[in-house]
């Protein structure tokens, strides 16, 4: 019984952790959208900034990956 409650808590926690991915999705969308609007304003400068774009996306995405990892840990490791 207690084990079941612990498991239930772990699964609920895993589900909650997945909400973090939504945050990182917003972040990645922000980065890409702002890059696009800037690139459309000044297309000649866009090519030199793709590296920055990917770094920004990577940083934003890493946090979503962390929450995914937390969810996985709760599901399989706890």
């Amino acid at each position: 019984m207690e084990g079941d409650i612990v498991q239930m808590g772990a699964y609920i926690g895993a589900g909650l952790a997945c909400m973090g991915m939504g945050g990182s999705a917003i972040g990645v969308g922000n980065v890409a959208g702002n890059f696009l609007s800037g690139a459309l304003r000044n297309p000649s400068a866009a090519a030199g900034q793709t590296a920055t774009l990917f770094i920004g996306i990577a940083f934003a995405e890493a946090l979503g990956i962390f929450s995914f990892l937390v969810a996985l840990l709760l599901m399989f490791a706890v």
């Binding site: 940083f59 995405e61 890493a62 990956i65 962390f66 995914f68 990892l69 996985l72």
Partner: peptide
């Protein structure tokens, strides 16, 4: 930490 977990998490997430 973020450097390694980013790569591992991305790879594992997609495959899973």
């Amino acid at each position: 930490v973020s450097h390694s977990i980013r790569l591992m998490g991305n790879m594992m997430a997609g495959h899973a």
